[in-house]
């Protein structure tokens, strides 16, 4: 079981959370060209290794969290709030 250290609630089992989405994407401007929106909505990297993603603490405090997860080992190396970012070194 993956365990996620929610900044509000502490370490909890991942069954309390739902995966949200890739947190490495940047939302285009409202008036950005359609191609850019198309890329944003449909194109995803599928990295083998560290990945930053949003998780929702749906059965806890209901906060949206940013999580750094290794897609190979499922190790969670960092959890923060949506506007935060892990140190580059981690």
């Amino acid at each position: 079981m993956i365990r996620i250290n929610c900044p509000y609630c502490g370490e909890r089992e991942h069954s309390e959370f739902t995966y949200g989405e890739d947190a490495t994407r940047t939302t285009p401007d409202n008036d950005a060209p359609m191609e850019e929106w198309n890329k944003f909505v449909y194109e995803r990297d599928n990295p083998a290794g560290e990945h930053i993603e949003y998780w929702h603490h749906a059965f806890g405090c209901r906060a949206w969290l940013k999580v750094q997860r290794n897609t190979i080992t499922h190790d969670i190396s960092w959890v923060g709030l949506p506007h935060e970012n892990p140190e580059a070194a981690s």
């Binding site: 739902t18 949200g20 949003y54 929702h56 749906a58 906060a63 949206w64 949506p82 506007h83």
Partner: peptide, 13 residues
């Protein structure tokens, strides 16, 4: 509900 929370916390804080 989860979507609205996401919009407010991630997209338009």
């Amino acid at each position: 509900m989860a979507y609205l929370e996401r919009c407010l916390e991630i997209d338009w804080p």
